[in-house]
Amino acid sequence: MSVDADTVRRIGRLARIRITEEEVAAYEGELNAILGFVEQLGEVDVSGVEPMTSVTPMQLRRREDKVTDGGYAEKIVANAPISEDNFFMVPKVVE
């Protein structure tokens, strides 16, 4: 499988990374080099093999469903580029 220029533009949109027209060709080449490299996985017989979901045999720990942390909104927004009254500020999203 390989990607074309349109696919590069589409991936850029899905990844929310602006790709300029001048960059498309270079990305196309680089992504195809990587996809060409991973193509060899097609040789492996994986019939009946379970995909790995956890690298060590472990059960995800559970805990009681209650609030154990929080109450410091000012710390949460402390690194925000723009905030107001402990809210993150973004451009208008609803007309």
């Binding site: 097609g42 492996v44 994986v46 790995m52």
Partner: peptide, 15 residues
């Protein structure tokens, strides 16, 4: 399926 699931199956074999 073609990429991610296959890679995770190969990972099982590596382990």
């Amino acid at each position: 399926d073609a990429y991610y699931v296959r890679a995770q199956k190969v990972r099982t074999l590596i382990k």
